[in-house]
Every structure is written in C-alpha cells, then in structure tokens.
C-alpha cells in the first residue's frame, strides 16, 4: 500500500489515518505517545519533553508537556473521527541516556515523563496496550496507522515491534 511518513518534531503532535505512518526521531528521556482507533484506523503521535506544565508560565506548545499534550492529542484524534471509547495507547521512550559516577539518580527525567504520561492517559480513561520505556537507549518510532503497530528502532538498526 502506498503510504507517507509524516515526521513529528520534539514537543509536536500529528494525527493521520491509514495507510500513513507517523514518525518521531531520537527519543531520549522524551516519550512518544501513540493513540489509535482500530476501527477507523485513525491515530496520532505526540512527542513530549517534560512531565508537568504547572511550574511554567504560559504554555505556548501544549505538546511539550505530558499533562497538556495528552488531552490535546486525544481531542485532535476525536476531531478527525476517532472515537474516545475505542482508543488505546502505546508508549515508547523515557530512557536514562547518561551514566557515570555510579549515580543512578543522575539525569532521570525519563522515568518522571513516563509516570506523567500514564497518569494523563488514565485521567482520560485510555488503556495502555503496550509500552517500551526506560532503559538507556535512544529510540526512533514509526507508528503504522494501517495496523496500529509501533516499530521501534534503536542504535545499530535494531528493531522491535509493539
């Protein structure tokens, strides 16, 4: 099937339909959230950077934060014809990229991002169908709107599918 790859940048989101794919590159501590309606094959991908918008003043890009980005993404999916009751989510990212000095607490915003995304999805009643989060590797993800599968690529061209 002829499909297009649409790339979402950091703090961005995009909603599309089958047979297209939505792509986001180089997720480190950031989290990629894929939301999908299997019946209409409409879905969206969001690339958040931070867990919580409340400590910042004006939010110019809702996609930057888990608490503002998840509702924005879900609303957009609904506007395009996805039904809220049928949506499920898949998550990837939230890695701890840096190591050293035996200090495991160093630079670990990834874990907080994942927790905030789970919470935001929970508030909207959206089930998490699969996730590939944490670890120490960066991820590129391809969200296939034909199948609802998320293909994850890590360094050295290693692939996983969730």
């Amino acid at each position: 099937m002829e499909y297009k790859d649409i790339t979402v940048g950091i703090a961005g989101y995009h909603v599309d339909r089958s047979p297209n794919r939505i792509v986001t590159l180089g997720l480190g501590s950031c989290v990629g959230i894929c939301v999908y309606d299997q019946q209409t094959r409409i879905g969206g991908l969001l690339h958040i950077m931070l867990p919580d918008s409340s400590q910042f003043g004006e939010v110019k890009k809702p996609g930057k934060f888990a608490d503002t980005g998840v509702p924005a993404l879900v609303e957009e999916v609904a506007r395009e014809g996805g039904r809220l009751s049928r949506l499920f989510a898949k998550l990837a990212g939230g890695a701890q990229m840096f190591s050293g000095n035996g200090d495991s607490s160093a630079l670990n915003i990834g874990t907080r991002n994942v927790a905030a995304v789970r919470q935001a999805l929970g508030r909207m009643g959206i089930r998490i169908a699969a996730e590939d989060v944490g670890g120490s590797q960066g991820r590129t993800i391809f969200f296939d709107l034909n199948t609802g599968q998320v293909i994850i690529r890590t360094m050295g061209n290693n692939y996983r599918v969730i």
């Binding site: 950091i10 180089g26 997720l27 950077m49 890695a95 990229m97 840096f98 960066g138 991820r139 360094m155």
Partner: peptide, 9 residues
C-alpha cells in the same frame, strides 16, 4: 547514542 536523544535529554 543518537544525537537527538542525547542532546534533547
């Protein structure tokens, strides 16, 4: 690792 992941983090 990947530049995007490292730099954004």
């Amino acid at each position: 690792d990947m530049l995007g992941a490292v730099l954004s983090t």
